[in-house]
Simulated scan of single mutants.
Amino acid sequence: MTHQYQCPAAESRTCFKYLGAIIADEGSKPEILARIAQATAALAKLKTIWNDRNIALSSKIRLMRSLVMSIFLYACESWTLTADTERRIQAMEMRCLRKLLGITYRDHISNEEVRNRTRQAIGPHEDLLTTVKRRKLKWYGYITRSSGLAKTILQGTVQGGQRRSRQKKRWEDNIPE
């Protein structure tokens, strides 16, 4: 069921929430920001687990990936990634890892050191931004091999002129990147 949803990013624009995802005329940024907020709230609710010294770091990371990152990654296949949203996704992942490791920004430990400590705990793993991009490519491949309405919509064009300004980044612009 759809209902009118007021975007937090811009009050003058309209958007709506459908099946838990925010559909906005300004792109994917409101959806990504909402997902970051929901994942951060889930991370905060599990504070007792993150602070418990009896739970191994590898278990904490597995819990974070299943309980927090799954909330964030919902419907990520439809996002249009810009440089700003990519930075926000990486910052959210680092915030989660620092919370698990008990590292504050006042400790002056670099992001690379945080990644190294995580690698030592669970071995090589895929970072969050790579996961989003991989899921987008997987969905694109699925759609291009099918012969349904989604393929027609993805490959279709809209008649009419284009307004004068810089072209907005489209979902399919991320595929060649």
Rank of each mutant, 00 (worst) to 15 (best):
E93N: 04
T130M: 01
L128R: 01
S110C: 02
A91W: 08
I22G: 04
E11Y: 12
Y105W: 12
F16A: 10
A75K: 14
Y105Q: 06
Q6I: 14
T118C: 09
G102S: 06
L67C: 14
Y18H: 11
T80P: 07
K29N: 11
D107C: 02
S59H: 13
N116C: 13
A42L: 06
I32V: 09
Y105T: 08
L67M: 15
Q4E: 13
G20H: 05
I61G: 09
M92L: 12
R62Y: 10
R135Q: 08
R62T: 13
D52T: 01
K138H: 13
M69C: 14
A24V: 01
K138V: 08
R65H: 12
W139Y: 10
T48P: 05
N54T: 15
Y18S: 09
S59L: 12
L57Y: 04
G20N: 07
I109L: 09
D84F: 11
I109M: 10
R95A: 10
T144D: 00
S146P: 02
T40G: 03
M94A: 05
M64S: 12
A24R: 00
K17G: 00
L129E: 00
A121N: 04
T144R: 14
A44N: 14
Y140M: 01
T2P: 09
A34N: 14
A39C: 00
L46P: 03
D84N: 13
N54C: 12
R35V: 06
G27S: 06
L33G: 03
G141A: 06
R117N: 05
K60I: 02
W79I: 08
I22S: 08
T130F: 03
N116P: 00
L129K: 02
E77K: 10
R88H: 13
K45V: 05
A44W: 09
M69K: 12
K60N: 05
L128Y: 01
G148H: 01
E112G: 11
S110L: 02
L19A: 07
S146Q: 06
T131R: 14
K29R: 14
